[in-house]
Design a protein around this nucleic acid. Sequence first.
RNA 1: CGGGCCGUGGCGCAGCCUGGCUAGCGCGCUUGCUUGGGGUGCAAGAGGUCCCGGGUUCAAAUCCCGGCGGCCCGACCA
Length: 566
Amino acid sequence: MLWSKLFIPTLREIPAEAEVPSHQLLLRAGYIRQLAAGIYSYLFLAQRSLLKIQQIVRQEMDAIGAQEVLLPALHPAEIWQESGRWDIMAENMFRLKDRFQRDLCLGMTHEEIAAVLARGELRSYKQLPQIWYQIQTKFRDEARPKSGLLRVRQFLMKDSYSFDLDQAGLDIAYEKHYQAYRRIFNRCGLEYMAVEALSGAMGGSQSHEFMVASEAGEDSVVFCQACGYSANLQKAVSQPALPSIDDPPGDLKPEPFHTPGRKTISEVAGFTALPETSQMKSLVLMADGKPVLVLLRGDHQLSEPKFAAISGDPEFRPAHPEEIREYFGASAGSLGPVGIKNMTILADRALAGRHNMIAGANRDDYHLRNVTLGEDFEAELHDLRQVAPRDECLHCGRELEIRKAMEIGHIFKLGYKYSESMGLRVLNAEGKEIPPIMGSYGIGIERILSAAIELYHDRDGMILPPAIAPFSVVVTPANNADAAQMSAAHDIYTKCLALGLDALLDDRDERPGVKFKDADLIGVPYRITVGKKLAGGLVELVERKTRKTTDVAAAEAAASVVQLIS
RNA sequence: CGGGCCGUGGCGCAGCCUGGCUAGCGCGCUUGCUUGGGGUGCAAGAGGUCCCGGGUUCAAAUCCCGGCGGCCCGACCA
């Protein structure tokens, strides 16, 4: 295509609202424009790149036998009420009414719709397994859209749904997706990790997230360089770093002492001259309307997802001050497990085997020393803590690393949640009605582009992997006034097209500097510069990523690019 | 939902605190000349409901009240 005819509105300056690199560059390079918070128009370059990504996704989904469909984006409320998610999705779902005042919503995901389609059509085990996928616009009324295309209210998702006769079948569908996702992200040129993840509001048993390490990400991943263990911080497990000092020996009895005004762990640690690892942290949470006392080592943080899973109440909340006073007779800051009989006590495993620790005395401004789990009080032991820096890998002992990351894909073994709630049934070989088992698998299309930009850019612009760049090569005559250069550039451009390259001819009547800057900005992987060396029959082949420049014969230029890309 | 910042030609900003002439600068845009290997130089132009509504005042971009919108932090997040 001829650049002079295209609408590629590049900006010299960074729009004030853009913070993260991908957002800044998408705006500057003329890929996107904002319509409202979390809602963007995709201009020519973005659309071109997104179509390439979608094509890769399609090819790999087709390769595992998945069938492309297109489900509605507009859903009647009843479907979501059946699964119970009409309420669960709360404010995150866009809702509207039709002219008859019937409730509708815009689809934020499609488990329900896929299940409804399946229950109307699937009758026999002979029709299984099935994998249906679509690439479609999703709508989510995010509390806080941010970071350009990273968290938006309308976006493209490849989502697929598998239906199998039994667990073994689901395992196969899951593994197929896992491998297909690896191929997709590899082909898109991304460096990524597949990590263990929580299922969240999706429900289900097993789940992996595909993550790209980036400071712009909103998640944290924990991983082990030695054995390859990796998990979302929400789910990760670890061996905690040892306490800073040994516990006092002996079987000592709890003993109250005055701690005026010392409420936080660090205040009590300072006051007692004992490290935070010697303190017992007491949290009071309300789960299913009942109080639960949670105990952690002083330096540890509660993992809210783990507590939600253990308590069975995803809607749990911290107890209010009045409730704490009612149950403990003291305020937060002086709470502890000794003498507490009126509620469940959960203790983190890091407290097992510890002796003579410091805990609140359930009397304002008093704490107890010499508190020992199993002797002075009883508690259920669970993994309740969030992995912290310096923790060790549970599998191999190596120190774990924690990094910020962005999610680009997520796969779930759903189990029977939707088949049962939505009444999906097929006859098995024995003629008995059974619910199929489901899986659900998603890829954020725009996030692949955003992640690639976050990973690969420099101060001049994007450095897109060739597979997802809007163009593979740009042919740039340095001087439009030079008829020989222009004509040679045209020839090379035509040859590129003939060889199947996505080529762009920068025929704009601009100074060479402008053309070079723009080419760098929009991230075209290769540039063929037709300039003064043409007199000697040579042109320059420049690799965007390395800036490496090679002189090649004008007649060979197009073929050289083909060679580099394949 | 809590906290913070911000709305002034297409973009980046100044002016506002301390109200006052015709709202200014850089970039971009148009035209002409010039230049032609990393955002060329010169000249002449076009382009603004100062987010919206109300109030105070002789006078409001500026002060006050109320909205709307955008960004960031936190909470939330399949």
